[in-house]
Amino acid sequence: MLFKFNNVSKNFSRDFWQKDFVALENVSFSVNQGNITGFLGANGAGKTTSLRILLQLIKPTKGSVEFAPELGKDTKEIFKNIGFLPERPYFYPSLTGKEFLLYMGMLSGMKKYQILVDIKKWSERLSIAHAIDRKLKTYSKGMLQRVGFASTCLHKPQLLILDEPLSGLDPVGRKEFKDVMIELSKEGKTIFFSSHIVSDVEEICQEVVILEKGKLIYSGGISSFIENNSKNLFELKLIKKDFIPNEKLMRFLTYQNDELMILKIPSEEKQNVLKDLNLNLSAIYSLVPEKPTLEEVVYKIRSYESRS
């Protein structure tokens, strides 16, 4: 465990005649060392509020955040081992990319020559070397995101906290960022990044924390989350022209077009269905166990939560 949320709640006061807005309610989870952990939730689920509490920018109404001793003994030592990229970062427009990175490196306690070496490395790795001496006001949104990411990685932190790091990037940029995250993870860094794009999280994360309207829905491994929340189904595709109509099978039909029929069969019914197809096996196009994506499972749970 690298850090842990212990029953964290956060209320924001509104006008005195209105009830407080509950942004987080008894949220508890932990993030393990060396993993890439995705922090999922729809807009307004409480992700950014959680990150601000984690970074001590705002105080929780209730509960606490605990850091592992490996990160450091006091706040300064802990923060020296953290790299944070806020959502839609906006930097000093009059400074050049190099000056900004030098500024961030110096605040992290690095020596000037080491910062310059690392600026060269990261600007090349994140494809901004050509613009590093230009003022930040001339940078595009994606380039600012890259400078922000470089400043986050510059001081070799143990824990990287990234708030929507992939937003505002083109497909090539998204791929580059994901590759860098995987590389850093292989080097033993812990990455905790928020996103509302489930497929990004599923692609690179081992673990996930899911929030919905300020409440924790799940925290843990992605594969076990999918397994626990999916029905054990098989997908049977039949070639329509070879299929001899069979009333018993039609109750499993979920979709059909001119060529194929798609049936979703519970695993306990699989044997019976195959028996029913005994004389008609040539109609089988494929039979595979259905594996829902993380997105499908999350969507299903969200629908269930909003109904309840």
């Binding site: 920018l57 020296k80 906006y90 961030m104």
Partner: peptide, 14 residues
């Protein structure tokens, strides 16, 4: 407003 200080206060700076 521009969240620039988040980058700074998340470093060892009080």
């Amino acid at each position: 407003e521009n969240r620039t200080l988040y980058m700074i206060l998340s470093r060892p700076v009080s």
